[in-house]
């Protein structure tokens, strides 16, 4: 068995999860210049509601995994709308530059506390929808669910890209991202677009939650670290680049698994965070961050 391939593949699965969450950060940042710092909690809520529907903790199972996913996506979007309405809209209305930072963090803490009271503080296993016996790829053992994570993440990002490029409403979202004022002049309700981007960002987080839950432990505190690392990924890759989120995610994911194996699991978060510091010092827009293409 090839250890390095093994580590890289596992790192890729983890990295794609970071990428999906980072994608959510990017979507609200693009339309409104704000971020949902409760993104990790949106992920946790997705995983916990998913577990309640498909596991036995709430007297279930009520739905199988594949039917549960769309329900969780709907609940995730609604949660995003709540965050936008309660934490972001008031801050944007009074042109508060930093108010949304505190209010999204506060809302995230509230969500976590509620989750702790509803579901308890202990981590519980999430039943895997795919076989739990590893398959052999390139001399490595990999869980089918790890492959499922990669496929699911790429599928979601592909669909989003298609939506943005091919549909009228997607074009309106892109237009709002590049120039909110001009988008308004086109007749685009930019406030609705911002609310939509929050729904989308929580949807992606909830999706990441149900993707990763079967290969990790599910619990009220699972979101905080994931949310923070995905934020690092968004900064490393650039807050404006979807490609950056994927590359940043893969770098961080692979750095984690390899460091964990070759050095010590205690240090697995260090290389990624050092990379973050280096990027902030030398390329503050991220690896793929770009200024808009515009000629005058």
């Amino acid at each position: 068995m090839n250890i390095l391939t093994q580590l890289v593949l596992s790192g890729m699965a983890l990295g794609m999860i970071y990428a999906v969450i980072a994608f959510g950060y990017q979507s609200t940042f693009a339309t409104s210049g704000t971020l949902n710092f409760g993104q990790g909690e949106a992920l946790m809520l997705g995983a916990m509601t998913g577990l309640s529907l498909t596991g036995e903790i709430m007297g279930g199972p009520y739905l199988n995994y594949w039917l549960m996913v769309p329900v969780v996506l709907v609940i995730g979007s609604l949660q995003g709308l709540v965050v936008e309405f309660l934490a972001v809209r008031p801050a944007l209305r009074i042109h508060s530059e930093f108010g949304w930072i505190m209010s999204t963090i506060a809302l995230g803490i509230i969500f976590r506390n509620v989750a702790e009271n509803v579901w308890g503080r202990d981590d519980v296993p999430f039943p895997s929808p795919l076989p739990t016996t590893p398959v052999h790829i390139l001399g490595a053992n990999i869980l089918p669910m790890e492959l499922g994570v990669m496929v699911g993440a790429l599928l979601l990002m592909g669909l989003m890209e298609l939506f943005n490029r091919r549909t009228l409403y997607g074009k309106a979202v892109v237009a709002t991202s590049s120039d909110r004022g001009a988008a308004g002049l086109m007749g685009i309700d930019t406030r609705a677009v911002i609310a939509f981007s929050y729904a989308l960002s929580s949807l992606t987080a909830a999706f990441a939650g149900v993707l990763i839950a079967p290969i990790t432990l599910t619990g009220a505190s699972m979101g905080s670290v994931l949310g923070l690392k995905a934020f690092a990924v968004a900064i490393i890759g650039g807050l404006t680049s979807g490609m950056g989120a994927v590359v940043g995610g893969l770098i961080l994911g692979i750095a984690e698994t390899t460091t964990g194996f070759y050095f010590s699991t205690g240090y697995k978060d260090v290389p990624g965070l050092i990379l973050l510091l280096l990027i902030l010092a030398w390329k503050p827009n991220g690896l793929f961050g770009r200024a808009a293409v515009q000629k005058f």
Partner: peptide, 24 residues
């Protein structure tokens, strides 16, 4: 009225600085 409602009412504004959408 917010800009999008004014546009819906039938007024178009080609703004100062052009403000085209450069990435589209």
């Amino acid at each position: 009225l917010p800009a999008h409602r004014v546009a819906q009412a039938g007024l178009a504004h080609s703004p100062e600085g052009r403000r085209i959408f450069p990435n589209q």
